[in-house]
Amino acid sequence: MSKLPDGIQRRQIDGQQRLATRGESVYGEPTDGEWRAWDPHRSKLGAMIELGMDHGLEGGETVLYLGAASGTTVSHVADVAGPTYAVEFAPRPARELLSAAESRPNLFPLLKDARKPNTYAHVVESGVDAIVQDVATRGQARVALENRRFLADDGRLLLAIKARSEDVTRDPAAVFADARDELTEDEMGYELVESQRLDDYHTDHLAVVARPK
């Protein structure tokens, strides 16, 4: 099992061993003192960590988070990481993202479209250590490729692919196979480190850990 990054612990909360980070509560999650439980059922990255995937996070890295939504997961990321850029396109969830960012000076919310990196490349720095991606739109592999320019050569992509966002009618396994091919076929693409389905926590989702080629 992959080592937990600094700042994430397994703690006894509500009678269960749970992943937890330290920070101000965001969505009414159970807490133990300043520790707040990180629910793998509500967070794909949480599920990846719970499953012991090779996420490569150690704590303190610079992170670009695509598809931050209302900030559930990115708030935990900001609790353990360094500068954390959170891109979200929809204004409604972004309102909650703003309140999560209020108490986290290292969390930078951006109302931008992850499919158009040039609209935020003047803000997000180059050479980030990790890109976390959870966007429910068609062309998820494309988004990961477009945003590769932000990633350090030894950085990691932690990607959750939702099969139903690509094509509701196709077999998820086929959707995942295509996405893996698309990610790896280009010279400026990625090299897969690990991929695993998240079915125990999220139906029809594939988690991918990759490195830039």
Binding site: A121, H122, V123, V124, E125, S126, R149, F150
Partner: peptide, 9 residues
Amino acid sequence: GSADEPDSW
């Protein structure tokens, strides 16, 4: 604003 490529801002 916009930029084609990020930089070590």
